[in-house]
């Protein structure tokens, strides 16, 4: 339980850090802070992985389930970080 509590504290600290860097509203709202976006999403995916591995017990299982969960974190994190890089602000023209 002690290890789990420490991991929970890491999640709290990571959340506070995300909030702190996310407060740079001016830069973020203008889309001029891709590095901040990358950091915030990377921290979110790190937290998601911690929950999967330590809280949901995936870390204690060997084999397929762990690989699937690790792959999910990598793919989702890669997509959420990659989409703004592949299509920068204003590069998509959609007709509604």
């Amino acid at each position: 339980m002690r290890k789990t509590t420490l991991i929970w504290l890491v999640l709290i600290i990571a959340t506070i850090y995300s909030m702190k860097i996310g407060q740079d509203q001016h830069a973020l709202s203008r889309g001029e802070a891709p590095w901040l976006h990358t950091q915030i999403i990377a921290i979110a995916m790190f937290k998601a992985r911690m929950v999967l591995i330590h809280f949901m017990g995936v870390g204690a299982t060997g084999g397929a389930l762990r690989y699937v969960c690790e792959a999910w974190v990598l793919i989702v994190g890669g997509a959420l970080i990659g989409i703004p890089m592949l299509w920068p602000h204003g590069s998509i023209a959609l007709t509604h």
């Binding site: 999640l11 959340t15 995300s18 909030m19 996310g22 973020l28 901040l36 976006h37 915030i40 999403i41 921290i43 979110a44 995916m45 937290k47 998601a48 929950v51 999967l52 809280f55 949901m56 989702v76 959420l80």
Partner: peptide, 16 residues
């Protein structure tokens, strides 16, 4: 899992 999903939804909608 519900907690995990919120940990991703929150920064995406509110912080970035």
């Amino acid at each position: 899992m519900v907690d995990l999903l919120w940990l991703i939804i929150f920064p995406l909608l509110y912080l970035t």
